[in-house]
């Protein structure tokens, strides 16, 4: 699935990384606990979270992820977006709740 498709499925707003939307992702992870995200050794390209702080970007960076999706209409501040931009991460924001956002991506084929 491309990040463009992720955006469309979640009716998400693109907050940064517009130019990277053709990136393919095959796996995702949803959590508000960063140590949970860090605990899985496998490749995870997409991080869905309701947590909004710079550590979300750091965690995504450490795990070589491609995209962060902020759920429940959360809006990151400028500092967070600057950091994400610098790390070449796509940032999306959706009004969907975590459960729905994960479910929507799952039924549309993002199953890893």
């Amino acid at each position: 699935m491309t990040l463009k498709e992720v955006r469309d499925i979640l009716h998400a707003e693109v907050l940064c990384g517009e130019e990277l939307l053709d990136t393919e992702v095959r796996s995702a992870c949803g959590s508000d606990f960063m140590s949970d995200v860090l605990a899985y050794v496998k490749n995870q390209a997409l991080l869905l979270t309701g947590l909004v702080n710079p550590q979300v970007v750091r965690t995504a960076e450490m795990m070589d992820m491609k995209c962060i999706v902020f759920v429940r209409g959360k809006q990151p501040d400028e500092a967070i977006l600057d950091l994400a931009q610098d790390r070449q991460l796509v940032v999306l924001a959706t009004k969907e709740r975590m459960y729905n956002a994960c479910g929507l991506l799952y039924i549309n084929g993002l199953r890893e």
Binding site: S35, A39, Q55, V56
Partner: peptide, 12 residues
Amino acid sequence: DLGFGAGMGLPN
């Protein structure tokens, strides 16, 4: 509240 403190750091 900042996403840490789940007691998983040292195990990770």
